[in-house]
């Protein structure tokens, strides 16, 4: 790919904006490019990044999933409270949570693919359902983390100490999960026919069906995958925070969707990719985490998030409008005689 094509991409702009922003923060505070700040950033983007990867796939297929925080919370809360102390190994907790997530995702997928309802409204509905089950039936209160997950959560891959301030930051094992997930998703989306099917269905459903792709199956798969991932990420979140707090993922869906769109993933499907999603999340995390370094009160963080969402989506919306309005007649240079 040549340079001209690269500079035309949304990903390129986001990368430039991130770079400029980082340098600005560094100039202002002198604290941005310190080892503990970087580690802190990587740590706090771990969970949103994983969610974002799942959401990106749903968006590319032409859907949207607003229910993953609810799925994550419910699966996580179920395994952590109802299976507390049953296993000494974290694996069964993950597996059961993934299975629960898969089932909830399958419900989403079935309703969306079968009835062709707007995915946003369906998943807002199931989201309410899942959260209601967690809060109403399981009873949602803080709960101590089971020892197996606690052990996982305290496994660090890196500890960084700031020479000046003496502050230390640690990077947990979950960062590795995130990296693996990103690589696996990249592989799925770009190197497998299933990935191509997701793009095809998101690009033109009728053409996909005519080309022999299984549209219903692809939609089902994507929502099941999103659900299963949410189950996994829910347990990751609990073990990272070392406590079971059922309500602290609620509301993340909106930031995650916004991060994807910011990174060039189209809300109407078929367009975007993992690099964009990763950069979009990175930008959102860096901005909201750097407000303190910039001396802005944390009270402003929501305002900033809103502005980023609006500006970011406006840019891609304008590009989309231009693409739609573009005409394609090859006008001959000189009038024929």
């Amino acid at each position: 790919m040549n340079l001209k094509k690269i500079t035309k991409k949304t990903e390129f702009y986001i990368a430039v904006i991130i770079l400029v922003f980082c340098i600005l923060v560094q100039l202002r505070s002198g604290q941005f490019f310190t080892n503990n700040n970087i580690v802190d950033l990587l740590r706090s983007m771990t969970i949103p990044m994983m969610f974002c990867v799942g959401e990106m796939m749903v968006l590319i297929s032409g859907g949207v999933d607003c229910s993953f925080p609810a799925i994550a919370s419910l699966s996580m809360y179920f395994v952590c409270t109802r299976m507390d102390g049953m296993f000494g190994n974290p694996l069964p907790y993950f597996l059961v949570a993934i299975l629960l997530g898969l089932m909830m995702g399958a419900l989403n997928g079935f309703i969306v693919a079968k009835f062709k309802f707007p995915a946003m409204i369906v998943t807002l509905g199931t989201s309410s359902l899942f959260l209601g089950i967690m809060q109403g039936i399981l009873g949602s209160s803080e709960y101590p983390l089971t020892s197996a997950l606690n052990a996982l959560g305290t496994t660090k891959i890196l500890t960084a100490t700031n020479a000046q301030s003496g502050l230390t930051s640690e990077l947990p094992i979950h960062f590795v999960f995130m990296v693996i997930l990103i690589v696996a998703t990249w592989f799925l989306m770009n190197k497998t026919m299933l990935g191509r099917a997701i793009y095809a269905v998101g690009g033109d459903e009728v053409a996909a069906a005519r080309a022999g792709f299984n549209v219903f199956g692809t939609r089902m798969f994507i929502f099941c995958l999103s659900g299963a991932l949410a189950g996994f990420i829910g347990v990751c979140r609990a073990s990272m925070l070392l406590t079971v707090s059922p309500n602290n993922m609620i509301g993340m869906e909106m930031d995650v969707i916004a991060a994807c769109v910011l990174g060039g993933v189209s809300l109407v499907g078929g367009r975007g990719g993992i690099i964009g999603a990763v950069l979009g999340t990175a930008l959102m995390t860096i901005v909201s985490n750097s407000l303190i370094l910039l001396g802005v009160s944390t009270q402003w963080s929501r305002v900033f998030t809103g502005v980023i969402i609006i500006v970011g989506t406006a840019v891609s919306a304008i590009q989309e409008q231009r693409r739609k309005k573009k005409l394609f007649v090859t006008v001959s240079a000189k009038p024929e005689v």
């Binding site: 998101g202 033109d204 005519r210 078929g270 367009r271």
Partner: peptide, 8 residues
């Protein structure tokens, strides 16, 4: 209607 994929 050609049935091509515009995004690929």
């Amino acid at each position: 209607d050609l049935s091509v994929f515009p995004n690929l």
